[in-house]
Amino acid sequence: MTAFVEYLLTGVSRGLVFALLAMGFVLIYRVTRVVNFAQGAFAIFGGFITYSLLKAGVPHGLSELLAVAASALIGLVFGIIAIGGEIPLLASLVITIGLSILSEAIVMLIWGTTPISYSGLAGHDFVIFGAFIQRQYLIVIIASLVVFIALVYGFGRTYFGKAMSACASNPYAARLSGINVKKMGLIAFTLGGALGGLAGVLITPLSPITYSADISLAITGFAAAIVGGLISPGLAVVGGLVFGIAEQFVAGYWSPSNETAVALALLIVLLLWQARRVPVGGLE
């Protein structure tokens, strides 16, 4: 029971981090139809920037906030590069792959190749059903839930959020209604950057990251986003949780070396399931 609770809570919090990444994919895809493969890069920037700020003596809380803000700014810059001009969709997608590779190079140049980590917010670990749980897991769960609620409210209830959804729903009609679709796309990239950055800020205390951690984070985030067909934020959260929990149970009850293989196998199954549910090319 103790181990089960530990795996479950760890899985849930890691899953929510994946969900944050997945939400970034969904948000950017919904508004711009671009799959942003640089989504994982935002996370490593978030993690590394927090690490440097903490080392420079900036207090906890502020460091994390600044890192998320910096990631948002990086998101905006990536957005301008990827969709700023009159660029075909496929070219934008390839640009994001290039930006992801470029990010790795930049992080490696600035911070080197050694994995980094930092301690989460100070405080006691706590015990649930006899399982020792790091406080950081609780922080992850609370922070992501707050973000999800804010996003659901922001998109579903506010006029601005509806205008953003309109861009996703029908870009042509959105332009006719006077909505600046390009600006909305850049806002989506900025928010995507913030979400990715937050994911990195939250996960680094739990598992050290390196300059190349963006790939595995992006793949897992993408897999979670695929569960919702890249458009449903709710299903993306479910997807993130499935991956996070599955990963922890595989690592705990079987072997940590199998966790990536199982995640990828799950991704393939989900892709097949999606393909059956949503016919390719929209044929009925």
């Binding site: 006029y159 729903s169 029908n170 009609a173 209604s177 909505i179």
Partner: peptide, 17 residues
């Protein structure tokens, strides 16, 4: 060219953007 995923009311309101 309605916004298919939005409600009728949201479609209308966005006309006043």
């Amino acid at each position: 060219q309605v916004f298919p995923d939005l409600t009728v009311e949201d479609n209308l309101c966005l006309g006043a953007y």
